[in-house]
Design a protein around this nucleic acid. Structure first.
Lengths: 222, 222
DNA sequence: TAAAAACCCCAGAATTTTTAAGGTTATTAT
DNA sequence: ATAATAACCTTAAAAATTCTGGGGTTTTTA
């Protein structure tokens, strides 16, 4: 009987126990499923490092938000994903995220290119089981809400560059236009131009920033 | 008992009968599934037009390649998809394609934004059933090979504009560089520049066109 | 009702892209 | 083997796009 090694990293103890419980009960070919857990970036990192020269995890589940917001976040789930890819390239990586935040999804799909992405409200015993099986045999696995976000993105004909995306993102987080210069390497004048241009692309000329981020969200950019 | 109306359009008579047989046997909530078929663009168009003022199809399955290659192709499955969206916007549209041709997938996902996309080698009774159920309740449904193509695209950090994509596409179909001017609205000099630029983006400086299209395929552009 | 921020318009600077022209190298067909 | 053809490179100027700073008006906020 083969062993399928899974690591689950989530900062909520109870959530993780839930995953462990469900995952280990999955009946999957002749695999014996074994789940390790960690609830911090460091903990996850240690587990992965330990595994590298022995069994190596088959699947690593990672919470996108490893630290409660507001605290100083030295490392995110995305960082841990990148690390895992480097340390243990054969492991399949599946992200779990609380919200179907398009910006985050897009960013992670580009940087880590995970073998799976699940929005937490889509997660239940059935979908977890499907994720495990799909990821092992025929990745990727994307949960329904993740797929909806991906679809939006793919259907989009508007092409934005890095700077446009940064502008949209920072506006959506509440950054004021005048402070945007610091984050985007452009003059305030250029930023204003780009905002105008974006509004015209989205067909909302002469409207305010709220309309802009609503439109950008609708199209899956944020 | 509710009726779920499905239209399947494929130019291979037998394939279509297969779909009809499988689809009508699906057990799905308290739906009675009814499948109409057509095997030409015109036939499909007629069926959809007829349906508009009566029952309206719940799902329309469309073969991407509605006509055997080599013949004059007045209309493609993509055209029929666009027409269907216009005539019967409430219908879910699912494309079926023989190959996981990235260029085609990307183009259709942008133009029609279908509720499902299946690569034919992924199609079997199980996946068809899943497609139907997913598309009705929580679209989109993408089959495994379609998902692999989509993943490639999403993971890609290289951004190409319309002209770059056209160049790659036409080169991949065998168009000679000197004839490219007709298809892309640029001078041969610019096209050469862009090709050079593309090769450097893909990290294959000083290599030939074959390397270019191989690299572009690897990244999901073609 | 001031002050701050957002927004608009302009024109020159800087950057990128396109283009033509003239050449070399590689491929193809006879 | 050798023309002929296409692919590819370089250069420099033209054209298009984007950026920027400086001026202003309008809207929002305290």
């Amino acid at each position: 009987m083969k062993t399928l090694r899974i690591l689950a990293v989530d900062d909520h103890e109870m959530t993780m126990l839930g995953y462990k419980f469900i995952l280990e009960r999955i009946v999957f070919d002749d695999y014996n499923i074994l789940v390790d857990t960690a609830n911090t970036y460091e903990g996850g990192k240690d587990k992965i490092e330990e595994s590298v020269y022995s069994f190596r995890y088959d699947i690593i589940f990672l919470d996108v938000q490893l630290f409660p917001p507001n605290e100083q976040q030295p490392h995110t789930g995305e960082d841990l994903g990148l690390l895992a890819r480097k340390l243990s390239p054969s492991s399949k990586i599946v992200f779990m995220s609380s919200f179907s935040d398009n910006y985050r999804i897009n960013s992670i799909l580009k940087s880590v290119d995970p073998d799976g992405y699940m929005v937490k409200t889509d997660i239940d015993p059935r979908s977890l089981e499907e994720a495990v099986k799909t990821v092992v045999y025929e990745p990727p696995y994307y949960s329904a809400k993740a797929l909806a976000a991906i679809r939006k993105k793919m259907a989009n004909t508007i092409e934005l560059d890095e700077n446009d995306r940064k502008i949209l993102y920072h506006i959506s987080t509440g950054t004021k236009t005048k402070d945007l210069e610091q984050y985007v390497g452009l003059s305030s004048s250029s930023i204003e131009n780009r905002k105008r241009h974006l509004k015209s692309l989205f067909g909302i000329e002469k409207e305010n920033d709220l309309s802009l981020i609503v439109a950008a969200k609708k199209r899956g950019f944020i």
